[in-house]
Amino acid sequence: MNAVTMRAVRKRFGQVEAVRGIDLDVPAGSLTGFIGPNGAGKSTSIRMIMSIIHPDEGSVQVLGSDAITAKDRIGYLPEERGLYRRMKVGDFLSYMATLKGVPSQGMHRRIAGWLERVQLQDVAKKRCQELSKGQQQKIQFIASVIHEPELLILDEPFSGLDPVNARLLNRMIRDIHATGRTIIFSTHVMHQAEQLCDRIVLINKGQKILDATMPEIHARFDPRTVEVQPVDADPRCVDALRAIPGVDSAQWVPERRAAELHVARGADPQDVMRAAMAAAPVRSVELRRTTLDDVFVELVGEALPPSEESGNG
């Protein structure tokens, strides 16, 4: 069963077609990452799932019904999020929970429980404007999950969080997912998506260009990056390595004291690895696993015009 089903969905804003015929199935219980460059159509797609805006064409089904009916069963943390600055934290959470259909009975306990989970047990009586940015983000997160939604949509949840709080949030997302809830997680930070998600949807220019589980992605996209650590850690080895047949680019990565070789399509990475060992005395040669970053660059890079691609590269 799918938590979200989109069929041939289109959305236009004036002259700009933000979403161009997207078909999408988000399986119930999955943790799906929405990735894509800025302006790709991720937030528009999410807003349509949330029925904040409506598609011009196509259909959106959420949790087996139309999006408006399911509104109270969805939790949403938008990318551009805020709080009522002068409202007290407890009142704000209570207000949001009431709007999401949480009964008033036991509300206080529910709010206190969540505040304790995010280590903010003493802020209920404080005004939102008195909190730090990180604390405000935690409150915003609680507001999106306080009604225990079946589907949770998080749009860039880690932006602005320090590493400690990011880890805390990461753990809570995993905990929520472990209870069987469906999570859609939108980001353009690839390693976060790779770390958290079991499924990836890549959107670019209003179209879905990838929709697969992580194992499928690893299987589909061959590893094409060879990392070579020379014994003497001399960057000058890059010139020799670049000359190996089948290598289309090579660069020195000072943090790892290694050279990174990109293997051209059609060439065999094993041949390149053997040639690298012959070209210079090496400490290690490794065929790196394909990262989501690589996939993103490969797919989105292909879709970009040449000037933009070189700019990114």
């Binding site: 805020g82 709007l99 999106s144």
Partner: peptide, 16 residues
């Protein structure tokens, strides 16, 4: 204020 403080979209996730 609701628009400028970005709380609007949070509210619109709960109500029309």
């Amino acid at each position: 204020e609701e628009k400028s403080s970005k709380v609007m979209e949070v509210i619109l996730s709960a109500v029309s």
